[in-house]
Design a protein around this nucleic acid. Structure first.
Length: 464
RNA sequence: GAGGCUGUAGCUCAGUUGGUUAGAGCAUCAGAUUGUGGUUCUGAGGGUCGUGGGUUCGAUCCCCAUCAGCCUCCCCA
């Protein structure tokens, strides 16, 4: 017999971990609902053709594909085809519907776009939805990177208003505030601003190259970026333009003001700046002064996914060495990929596994999440067992979460069980208690024990 | 796709410059204590030293291969 194990990059979540994760989910769900977003769930698997080509070349490689069933049952003619397709797959990155036609969900945005197109006639636009489900990526696991992880997304489709951007920024800030996660920075930029930079360089077609190089600024510093820009074919004049842009300092207003001067010859760039200004202006009206996460215009922010077209955001927590804990942006024609033109969308994503890791490292989970039921009834067997069942019923109908030890085993074993479970109270329904119609209630934290009626027990337990 | 580190009890890890019977802590079980847990004491069980091969009189240790896990780059949540 082999040792039991789980696939690389996946995890079991033990009770205490699930409680903490639910705490995050519940916090986010409350906010999403408060902002008027509706819940949506989509299948764990999608047709492979729905996913391929949406995440770039690297993304395609990371899609978990599902092998078709019943390959051995194919007719002989099909098997020849199967063999040749299989050979191709061994030579190069290649997929064939005869071998695999389904794949695990890679993110929540593309399935959402697919859903919107399929249900366009039923939906009231602008459609606001939130979705909290696992996604899978065939990446190599490392710190903060899993092959199965959960995303919580909020998107609005069918509206170009920058109020949406402002609302989503508020959702981020509100969520991190409610989770007690400080030292969070929400970075904001615009793809149009990046396009404007490329225009200024005289090489608008190299926007992606400039973007990718610029994105590495905090890792490889300006010198490294310069080198990379040279390698990617940007002229010296262009590089000096880029340098001017990234050297813009100050608060958000000052930065945008300065960028306006630099960008004045680029229509697209100016558009990006104006959008940022407008989004921030709306945000100012909507934001709560108590939220302490920073909102920072960062022209080096790029975002990998290639469907973004407008404002883009990314969230980082400076207190912990960890990749981004969230990201998002506007995509002008996402549903166009599935044949529905002219619908603009904007959304944000929370990486809840990373948020969990960060909160764990910073010890931000509330203490009381750890415990489960409130009280254990000791099983003394015989008539006492029946007496205990009656008490159990009363406790539960009063809303006290309670359990009876199901087996008649040694007293100290039952007590040890209660202790290990971290329960607050133990009730001893023994001979004496039963005869008096009372209960002994023991508080496990103080060690104090009293003979009480059921109602008194309920009152004390509920008060705690 | 490239590179680095680590595989010894259920868990976390010692260990042997190659030697007979491989250890500790935690956990588990039993007892001290058959209606009082969390503290303490006593005892017990538990290992193909990741797998395969090589060197050797002898390998958990050295060499090669392989698998798995962790980490870094790339990319991302």
């Amino acid at each position: 017999m082999s040792k039991p194990s789980i696939p690389q990059g996946t995890r079991d979540f033990s009770p205490a971990e699930v409680r903490k994760r639910q705490y995050i989910f519940n916090t986010l769900r409350t906010i999403f609902e408060l902002y008027g977003f509706q819940p949506l769930e989509t299948p764990a698997m999608e047709n492979l053709t729905t996913l391929t080509g949406k995440y770039g070349e690297e993304g395609d490689r990371l899609i978990f594909k599902i092998l078709n069933n019943g390959l051995h049952e194919k007719k002989e003619a099909d098997k020849e085809k199967l063999n040749s397709e299989w050979s191709k797959m061994l030579e190069k990155p290649f997929s064939s519907p005869i071998v695999t036609e389904r794949a695990l969900r890679y993110d929540l945005t593309i399935p959402f776009a697919r859903y919107v197109v399929m249900h366009q006639n039923e939906l009231a636009f602008p459609f606001r939805r939130y979705q909290m489900q696992p996604v899978w990526r065939a990446d190599r696991p490392q710190k903060g990177r899993y092959r199965e992880f959960w995303q919580c997304d909020a998107d609005v489709v069918g509206s170009t208003s920058l109020i949406n951007e402002a609302e989503l920024l508020c959702i981020y800030q509100s969520a991190f505030h409610n989770l007690g996660l400080t030292q969070v920075t929400v970075k904001i930029n615009s793809r149009k601003l990046l396009a404007g930079i490329a225009e200024l360089c005289g090489t608008p077609e190299l926007m992606m190259d400039i973007t990718i190089a610029l994105d590495k600024l905090d890792k490889i510093a300006w010198e490294g970026v310069t080198k990379e820009l040279q390698e990617r074919g940007i002229s010296e004049a262009g590089i000096s333009h880029v340098e001017k842009v990234i050297n813009v300092k100050g608060n958000n207003e000052e930065k945008l003001y300065a960028l306006q001067e630099i960008m004045k010859d680029s229509v697209t760039g100016m558009q990006g700046i104006n959008e940022l200004k407008q989004a921030l202006a709306y945000h100012k009206e909507l934001a709560d002064a108590a939220w302490d996460s920073r909102l920072e215009v960062d022209v080096s922010l790029a975002r990998g996914l290639n469907y973004y077209t407008g404002v883009i955001v990314e969230v980082a927590c400076k207190a912990v060495q960890m990749g981004s804990i969230g990201g998002g942006g506007r995509y002008d024609d996402l549903t166009g990929l599935f044949g529905l033109k002219g619908l603009s969308g904007v959304g944000v994503s929370f990486g809840i596994d990373r948020i969990y890791d960060v909160m764990e490292e910073l010890k931000l989970f509330p203490e009381q999440l750890a415990s489960g039921a409130d009280v254990l009834l000791i099983n003394f067997g015989g008539e006492n067992e029946l007496y205990a069942l009656g008490v159990l019923k009363q406790l539960r109908s009063a809303g006290v979460s309670a359990e009876l030890y199901p087996d008649v085993v040694k007293f100290d074993k039952q007590m040890k069980y209660a202790n290990k479970r971290g329960l607050q109270y133990v009730i001893l329904p023994g001979d004496e208690e039963r005869q008096k119609g009372m209960l002994s209630l023991k508080n496990f934290n103080s060690g104090e024990q009293k003979m009480l009626s059921v109602d008194e027990c309920i009152e004390i337990i509920k008060k705690n």
